[in-house]
């Protein structure tokens, strides 16, 4: 049993997954409530690296980056405001980052792991520690199905959580009866680890 464990441990090693998606599917969705209609938008400028060990998902580390300039809402005026100095100030704060510190309550079933991830979220230059539920799906040997001529594994990360825009200095002067303080975020990303 000890030998088997050692053997399994010897084969399993942390893998680095690159989240720069050549297919452009990776995205972060955001939603803020507002009187006429909710402000819905997304960002697809996702990059970063996550180190994941299939035999020890709790040891996952990494950093995910979202290019602030890739934030998009369908209304052109709102889009201009969103990128402007009062809201996201993309000219001076081009990156939104999340640095993973630790995974707690990791539960693995097959290829899926659910956990609570704690890390530092930096938006508009303001860094704050947050904890969010996360689901990791390890897709062994599936990279070739997605990117022809490449062999390797995929790691899919999904997370939905809420932050307050006042915590990150995102137009704190905007009245909350016009635009909600809460921002609902959904992250759906896949990273590749070629062999």
């Amino acid at each position: 049993m000890t030998l088997a464990s050692l053997g399994g441990g010897a084969f399993a090693a942390p893998q680095a997954f690159d989240f720069k998606d050549p297919k452009g599917v990776n995205n972060a969705i955001f939603k803020l409530d507002a009187p006429l209609e909710a402000i819905n938008g997304s960002a697809n400028g996702v990059s970063g690296t996550v180190t994941f060990d299939p035999s020890n998902p709790g040891a996952t580390k990494g950093r995910i980056v979202v290019a602030a300039a890739s934030l998009h809402v369908p209304n052109p005026m709102m889009n201009t405001h969103l990128h402007g100095a009062q809201w996201m100030d993309v000219a001076r704060q081009p990156e939104i980052t999340f640095e993973v510190r630790e995974l707690k309550n990791a539960k693995t079933s097959g290829d899926n792991t659910t956990a609570d991830v704690t890390g530092t979220l930096t938006i508009k230059g303001v860094a704050k520690e947050i904890t969010a539920p996360v689901k990791l799906s390890y897709l062994k040997g599936k990279l070739g199905q997605r990117v022809p001529n490449l062999q390797g594994d995929l790691l899919v990360i999904r997370s939905t959580f809420t932050i307050k825009r006042s915590d990150f200095a995102i137009n704190p002067a905007a009245p909350q009866d016009k635009v909600s303080d809460e921002i609902a975020l959904t992250l759906s990303i896949a990273g590749a680890s070629p062999r």
Binding site: V25, N27, E37, H72, N75, M78, R146, V156, A190
Partner: peptide, 25 residues
């Protein structure tokens, strides 16, 4: 449309391998 004017509309696609929903405008 009872909301604000849009100059782009989101188009959703499903990635068969990962099951992720991609959004393009």
């Amino acid at each position: 449309r009872a909301g604000w004017t849009q100059t782009s509309v989101p188009v959703k696609t499903i990635d068969d391998v990962t099951g992720l929903e991609g959004i393009a405008y």
